[in-house]
């Protein structure tokens, strides 16, 4: 038990130090790598907190995809703002101290709440487990996300849709630099790994019914497939892809909301699935969400509506 304590303390210390180091880093690139590494440690911490669902989400989104998004954005900014001092300007010292003060206050309040809340902490866990049998799935997290509080999840999917709308509004599809080709070793890797990634996305989706997994994790892995395709120029979006892309972005919202309308038409409450077929309803909705989330992530990575102009060819 002492060793567990040591393990946990080292882990906590590493997370705090990494968070500070990522904030204090002078170099943008260093900041990003530190942030990616922070994702690894945070995933381990979620495991230690007995929250494998969150750890899985962190593994799927936190380090790999977020790292890629940050890297691309950083490079894009640097490419644009070559010689522009404002691009590398750091926030003012006053802002830094203000944020530090705010964080200190919030941390103090958090500590106070930890002391003040009743023990054992009241929660809805018992209610969830009492109703799990009629939810259609065996994983309580999926039961909450796709059945008991499905409306929340629907609105979360809408948030993703709103993000992609705003990004398409702002994005500039013009290729901003000559990028290197990745070479034959990469293509061998892609040929081998991409199909397996698709399989694993399906596996995670299926897993969500009874174990940690589900549409968000599966969507993130599938989205990574899209990102690799884009990075390796295995797929280059053109103006003709705009409508299909919009369709898939909207699929999650339309599918989920459509399921709600269908349940209303059946005479049930909004998103009240017929109990005997709840599992099928949930799986179909989750499948649509997976595809939509994956496309949205890849679309966000691409960063704009694909243009009609051909991207500039790389040199080799």
């Amino acid at each position: 038990m002492l060793l567990w304590l040591v393990f946990d303390l080292v882990l906590i210390g590493a997370i705090v130090w990494l968070a500070w180091a990522a904030l204090a880093a002078r170099d943008g690139f260093e900041m990003i790598v530190l942030f990616m590494v922070l994702g690894l440690f945070v995933a381990l911490a979620w495991v230690r907190l007995q929250a494998p669902d969150v750890a899985l989400a962190e593994a799927a989104v936190g380090s790999g995809i977020t790292g890629a998004l940050l890297l691309k954005t950083w490079r894009h900014r640097r490419g644009r703002a070559a010689g522009d001092a404002a691009a590398d300007a750091r926030p003012s010292r006053a802002l830094g101290f203000g944020v530090m003060g705010l964080v200190t206050v919030l941390t103090g309040m958090l500590a106070a709440v930890l002391v003040l809340i009743p023990r054992p902490a009241p929660s809805l866990a018992e209610t969830v487990f009492a109703n799990l049998a009629v939810s259609g799935v065996d994983n309580p997290v999926t039961a909450v996300l796709l059945n008991f509080r499905a409306y929340d999840t629907l609105l979360e999917v809408v948030v993703l849709f709103a993000v992609v709308v705003v990004v398409w509004l702002l994005g500039d599809a013009e290729a901003d630099r000559r990028a290197p080709r990745l070479g034959s070793i990469f293509f061998g890797f892609a040929r081998l790994v991409l199909p397996v990634m698709v399989l694993i996305a399906g596996y995670l989706l299926w897993l969500g019914g009874f174990a940690p997994g589900g549409a968000f994790q599966a969507g993130a892995v599938l989205g990574a497939v899209g990102i690799v395709l884009l990075l390796g120029r295995l797929y280059t979006p053109t103006a003709a892809d705009r409508l299909p892309a919009r369709l898939v972005f909207g699929l999650g919202t339309v599918g989920f909301a459509g399921a709600g309308l269908a349940t209303l038409a059946l005479g049930n409450a909004f998103l009240g699935y017929p109990p005997e077929a709840a599992k099928t309803w949930i799986l179909v909705i989750e499948a649509m969400l997976t595809v939509s989330i994956a496309a949205t992530l890849a679309g966000l990575f691409f960063g704009a509506a694909p243009s009609g102009r051909p991207t500039r060819e790389s040199d080799r």
Partner: peptide
Amino acid sequence: VFAILAAIAVV
């Protein structure tokens, strides 16, 4: 999941 996404950031 970590294993399958290990190369994304490097790519």
